[in-house]
């Protein structure tokens, strides 16, 4: 078949010029301050708190999305009701809506004078400008990853095993726990992991609602911007390298997970 050299050449050139070399520039940068300098830059309490928040909130949001995403996917695949197709299409909104738009909308909605924020404020719950706000934004961003990953697998899931379980006297809950969930688990994990990966690096939707309190609701990507604005390029690059390293590890884990789930199907 022709075209191997050409297509590989184009791919490698484009990939190197636009992604690999720029990333190399990032990876090289922080070491001008030595390993100690690098370590000091990423372990200041403020940076640590930002990293903890970005990873922590992304993990919690992914966990919440794995539960509700599963329910949404289940309802959309298994049940028939009017408007199902529209809801199904609507799930992709976070993919299509610019993050800054999501950010100002969520911020207006959850601010102490917003539609949802006001009743919550009466109950003494603050969402906007707290870490909970970060969580809300990341739930918004992450939901379609879980639903979209699960749907095709759920649709393909054979009902034989469920039927067998039912014949053997299992309740619905039992057959869900023992039969359905195990076969969905790799896919569910994949979708959750993707929601997590996206959440860690998310910026646009978060900064409007987070309030950006140092050490409390300041996320890691914002910390990079602040470092840049302080003329601290090496420091900004150092945080960037930590996040990049984390996403590499994650990507490999994700690919392994996908290979595992493919082998189980």
């Amino acid at each position: 078949m022709p075209g191997f050299g050409f297509s590989l050449g184009v791919t490698l050139f484009y990939l190197s010029a636009l992604v690999l070399i720029p990333l190399a520039a990032l990876i090289i940068r922080p070491w001008e301050m030595g390993f100690d300098g690098f370590w000091a830059a990423v372990t200041t309490p403020r940076v640590l708190a930002a990293l903890k928040l970005s990873f922590g909130a992304a993990a919690i949001a992914a966990a919440i999305n794995s539960v509700f995403g599963l329910i949404v996917a289940w309802v959309l695949v298994r049940y028939r009701f009017p408007g199902r197709k529209f809801i199904d299409a609507f799930v992709d909104l976070p993919f299509a809506l610019p993050t800054a738009v999501a950010g100002i909308a969520l911020s207006a909605l959850y601010a102490p004078n917003g539609w949802i924020g006001a009743p919550l404020a009466k109950l003494g719950i603050k969402v906007a400008f707290t870490p909970t706000g970060v969580l809300v934004a990341l739930i918004f961003i992450g939901l379609p990853f879980v639903v979209r990953t699960l749907e095709p697998v759920l649709a393909d899931l054979s009902r034989d095993a469920e039927e067998a379980a039912a014949t053997l006297g299992a309740t619905r809950l039992q057959s869900f726990r023992r039969v359905i969930l195990p076969s969905l688990l790799p896919t569910l994990l994949t979708g959750t992991a993707m929601a997590f990966a996206r959440g860690v690096g998310e910026y646009g939707s978060v900064i409007f609602i987070a309030g950006n309190l140092p050490g409390v609701s300041e996320i890691a990507p914002l910390m990079i911007i602040i470092k840049l604005q302080e003329y601290d390029y090496a420091g900004a690059a150092a945080i960037g390298v930590v996040m990049l390293g984390a996403s590499f590890v994650f990507l490999f884990a994700l690919n392994a997970l996908q290979a595992w789930s493919a082998s189980r199907r």
Partner: peptide, 12 residues
Amino acid sequence: LIDIPFSVSPVV
């Protein structure tokens, strides 16, 4: 490698 940009923070 092609997938990398997808998991890199936009700020980076």
